[in-house]
């Protein structure tokens, strides 16, 4: 499972284990699974697609402004705003 964190300046919105996350990167969407290579990308305003397991419809979280970082601990999305 992939450890996913979504943080805004006001609070920690999400911190959970998920199957896959699709991040709206500024140079194109990219999916992150467990064991993804380290990457750092700015994000554009759009929806994060959150797949809790492999076979569910994704949960959409709207984010604005920020960036995503993948390291050995998992995926962290820092967004100015998130719903």
């Amino acid at each position: 499972m992939l450890h996913f964190e979504l943080v805004t300046p006001e609070r920690l919105v999400r911190s959970e284990e998920v199957h896959m996350v699709v991040v709206p990167g500024s140079e194109g969407d990219f999916g992150v699974l467990e064991g993804h290579a380290p990457i750092m990308s700015t994000i554009r305003d759009g929806n994060i697609e959150l797949y809790k397991t492999g076979a569910t419809t994704p949960e959409l979280i709207r984010v604005e402004g920020g960036f995503a970082e993948v390291n050995e601990r998992g995926l962290t999305v820092l967004a100015e705003r998130a719903e």
């Binding site: 750092m40 960036f67 050995e72």
Partner: peptide
Amino acid sequence: PATGAAVEYEPDEETILADLLPR
């Protein structure tokens, strides 16, 4: 953070940093 792995940047480091510093 002490990370040995090579990190890929999208776009490049300077652009991210320029976006990040005001934030």
